[in-house]
């Protein structure tokens, strides 16, 4: 027995480790999130939480469901593949409840220039103008219908103002 006596203190130290390890195992059960490891080394519930982020851009399908007249005009012109919110901005609030807000009409002088101001950096085939020479401060929709910009197609304020019903 005396043989063990001289090493007993080592077992006391080892005992600390065993206790710490057992505490670790118990705590682990409570601390690790339930869905952790469901698909991989992460919290599976996080996927749903990220997917629950609210939407700000309604998507053109939603716009077209009410504004089918504009969609028809647009489909014929060069802007057929420009989505509504590319120019009108994020409008999920409006799409959700049209009466809650009326979208502000973009200022064409600013809006059109953003894409169509001439720059040698832009792809060659892209229609570009020098705003100062081109119209000298006259708003673009005076001559162009933003929804179908070729002159003579369906020009003027009336067409641009569509979708108010």
């Amino acid at each position: 027995m005396s043989g063990f006596k001289d090493v007993s203190h080592l077992f006391r130290f080892a005992g600390l480790f065993v206790i710490a390890f057992l505490v670790f195992l118990v705590v682990r059960v409570y601390v690790v999130p339930k869905s952790f490891g469901e698909y991989g080394h992460y919290r599976a519930a996080a996927i749903g939480e990220i997917a629950a982020h609210p939407i700000k851009f309604a998507g053109h399908q939603a716009c077209e469901s009410c504004h089918s007249d504009i969609a028809d005009t647009k489909a014929k012109g060069a802007h057929a593949h420009v989505n509504c919110e590319a120019c009108h901005g994020a409008l999920a609030t409006h799409a959700n409840d049209p009466s809650s807000m009326t979208p502000v009409k973009p200022d064409t002088l600013v809006l059109c220039a953003r894409c169509h101001t001439a720059s040698a950096a832009k792809p060659k085939g892209f229609p570009q103008v020098n705003p100062a020479d081109h119209m000298g401060g006259v708003p673009c929709q005076t001559c162009h219908n933003p929804h179908s910009p070729a002159i003579g197609s369906d020009t003027g304020k009336g067409a641009a103002a569509g979708g108010t019903k």
């Binding site: 006596k5 001289d6 090493v7 007993s8 203190h9 080592l10 006391r12 130290f13 600390l16």
Partner: peptide, 19 residues
């Protein structure tokens, strides 16, 4: 810090040295 062991016999200290 002694962890409740006061054993500092020659042999135990020799064992400590080896460990």
């Amino acid at each position: 810090m002694t962890l409740g062991s006061n054993n500092i016999s020659e042999r135990s200290l020799r064992i400590d040295e080896k460990v």
